[in-house]
Amino acid sequence: MKMGRFRGFSMKHRVNMLFRVFRRNRSTTGYYRLDRPSSCWKTKASSCLFNMTNYLKTKAKAICSSSSARNLGPKRIMSRGYTQFGHDPNGGKTESSDVPKGQLAVYVGQKDGDFQRVFVPVIYFNHPLFGQLLREAEEEFGYNHPGAITIPCRISEFEHVQTRIKQGRTPRKLLSWKRQASS
């Protein structure tokens, strides 16, 4: 009975989540940074500048209204240095205050390059395509890596995987990979 109830709840929750995500996909306010033209990132200097302005913008907005951080959050990308400086002003008192619900922060980049902080929907982690990226992360950093998960790949490669997951996300398909992943 306990498990039965649990399942029912879980299913409802997931279906809800599906619809939420589905709605998001259709909306034009795409919340991934994937929607940004990649040319912005071609050169280090321009990416740095972009990071800097974006960071300042974010922080300025965050100061004006704390609720705006959520709308802005997913589009926000920062280089690692900035986020380490600014992302947890409460000294870790609250859990990941700037991360939207249902998502988590990961760092994407390659050795000696910029690591970009990207928000990823939590359920992507259960997707087999994402699993490959995680295996690479484990090989490079081990499981005991402190802090957020760091994925050692080019941001373009990472975006490609995200896009593929996103494209495959009709509810029926999602259900089938969920089933595969949990069996």
Binding site: V99, A105, V122, G147, A148
Partner: peptide, 18 residues
């Protein structure tokens, strides 16, 4: 969950293995 910059409620959605 805090170390991985996420919420505890979201950590619970992640499958075994991952």
């Amino acid at each position: 969950a805090k170390k991985r910059e996420m919420r505890y409620s979201d950590l619970k959605k992640i499958d075994r293995g991952v």
